[in-house]
Simulated scan of single mutants.
Amino acid sequence: MDLATVLLLHKSSFFIGALCFLYVRWQSPSSHGLGILAVAFTLQAVASTFAGLGEKHALQLSVWALSSFSLGTLGYAVFWIGMRRLSGNNNRRSLDWFALAIPAGLIVTALLTGFHLDSIWRASIFQGSSILFLGASAVTLMLDDRHEKLSARYALAAAIAVAVILSVFVVAGLMAPDTAPLHPRDAFFLLILCHFAIALFSLVFVKERVEAMLTTLLDTDALTQIRNRRWFFLTLPAAPLAGDAFIIIDIDHFKRVNDTFGHAAGDIVLASAAREMALNLRHGEIFARLGGEEFGLYLPAASNLDPQDVAERLRNAVQSLKVKVGETFIPVTISAGTAVACAGLPLHELMSRADTALYGAKSRGRNRIEAYRADAPSVLASDPRQNTRPAQTTKAGQAA
């Protein structure tokens, strides 16, 4: 395949990628980075066009060489900026634009020294800039996975990493053609396939992110911003194992809060209590709002967590809350019932036992934890390690 054909395919790959980025950006305006990536690919396409015109001797060497080199190096710098936006879904990294100082410095150096007129030097320095910015893009994608683990992220990083390796092969082929593992023209052709792969995986990455966001919205309670009933029951095992525990939690006198202070105040109390409990959870604790003022907490046996200790931790955390609505402080307490599964116990029965324990906690004064005893299912008993007396409340607390 001659160089003119390779350059035509090279240009086409960038133009197609730019159009795809613009289309998806139009369809999903919240997808940061796609517009910048479209600009980067367009710069590369125009740079390749100038190189093609130079190959056909349609332009003077000094014109097409400088134009192709300048637009190409700028394109790779802009690509890195776009990938930073895309990777972190953040459009507030204004300092990233200082990366344009690198291609600007190379362009000034080319004007002063004329190295761009030598094809070996021009191509080697151009590929060197691509290695720098493509490598930085791949690193950015991998570092951001701590905040957002999407499988397409790794595929996109891999495609960019392959492009870096091929760029190294191009430089090696130019500098040492006799010992290079791959002819520069062949490596350049494979880079075209990488451009398509980068565009493809970028779009897949955006699609996967949107789907993840929709799933999160579907599984999140709108008021409290914790997981909801749907997510909770989808996460639970089909049948509990021996030692699994279920805790059902209820905000004490919540109806009285709504009636006394209004539903807006009730929403604040509900969200505050949910947030405080969520902050006091540990790894392996499955927690969600089941509805109204009721919350569920599931502890797998493998977590080695004592349900009484966990429930008491949450009770203490909520009791220490200072919920202020206007000029009024509303005391908040919770009651909870715990139940531990034995072998063969159905999930609904485990939840029923915890609910029975919760009823016992409420009937004994609230602001307490009750455990359902598996060896005496008809009897409710407090955990002897816990205070069996309800915590003291103020008159305001009783009114709430």
Rank of each mutant, 00 (worst) to 15 (best):
W64S: 03
N228G: 04
I330R: 00
R315Y: 09
T388R: 15
R366N: 05
L156C: 06
W26D: 12
H147S: 10
L106A: 10
L95D: 07
A391L: 13
V6L: 13
G114V: 15
L223K: 13
T388F: 13
C20Q: 06
F79A: 02
T224K: 01
A278N: 13
V63H: 12
D186W: 05
I226L: 03
A4K: 08
D383N: 14
S352D: 10
S303D: 07
M213N: 08
I334C: 03
A274Y: 04
S31F: 08
L117F: 13
A374K: 02
G365E: 13
W231A: 10
Q127G: 07
S272M: 04
G17Y: 01
V206T: 12
L86T: 00
L34K: 02
V78Q: 05
V379W: 03
L86G: 00
S67A: 12
Q27V: 13
P103S: 05
T333A: 09
A136Q: 11
I192K: 00
F169H: 11
H57Q: 15
T113R: 14
A357Y: 08
A376R: 11
G75K: 00
T333M: 09
A110Q: 06
A238L: 13
M142C: 07
K324C: 10
L143F: 12
H116S: 07
Q27T: 14
D178N: 13
H253Q: 06
E349G: 00
S151P: 03
R185M: 15
C194R: 00
S303E: 11
G292K: 00
S202Y: 09
A157D: 07
G360H: 12
R92V: 14
L111I: 14
M277T: 06
R85D: 09
R185N: 15
L112F: 14
Q386E: 08
A197W: 00
T42A: 03
K11P: 00
T49D: 02
A222T: 14
S13E: 03
L166Y: 08
I125A: 04
P384E: 14
E349R: 04
S124C: 12
S130F: 00
A238Y: 05
L86P: 00
Q392V: 13
N280E: 09
W80M: 04
A278L: 09
A311I: 01
P346Q: 14
H253K: 10
E370H: 11
I226V: 15
A110Y: 06
Q27R: 15
D252H: 09
